[in-house]
Simulated assay, not measured.
Amino acid sequence: MNATKILHQGRQPMIRFLGKRTTPTHIDHSPKVHPASPTHALPESFASYRQKAQQHGPLNQSNKYSTGHIGGSPGSSLGPVEAGKGNYFDRSELPKRFQRLAWSQAEIEAVESGGASMFA
Rank of each mutant, 00 (worst) to 15 (best):
M1A: 15
M1N: 08
K5N: 15
L7S: 14
L7V: 14
L7E: 12
H8C: 14
Q9Y: 07
P13G: 09
I15Y: 04
R16A: 04
L18W: 07
G19T: 02
G19F: 00
R21M: 09
T22I: 10
T23A: 15
P24V: 00
T25R: 14
S30V: 03
K32R: 15
P38Y: 01
P38Q: 02
T39I: 08
E44V: 07
S45H: 02
A47R: 05
S48H: 11
Y49D: 06
A53W: 05
Q54D: 04
Q54E: 08
G57V: 02
N63W: 03
Y65K: 04
T67K: 04
T67A: 08
G68F: 07
G68H: 04
G68S: 10
G75S: 09
V81F: 14
G86W: 01
G86R: 02
G86A: 07
N87R: 09
N87P: 00
Y88H: 15
D90T: 07
D90A: 10
S92N: 05
K96A: 11
R97G: 04
Q99P: 01
Q99G: 05
R100Y: 06
L101C: 05
A102H: 13
E107W: 06
E107R: 03
I108D: 07
E109T: 10
V111E: 15
E112Q: 15
A116E: 13
S117L: 11
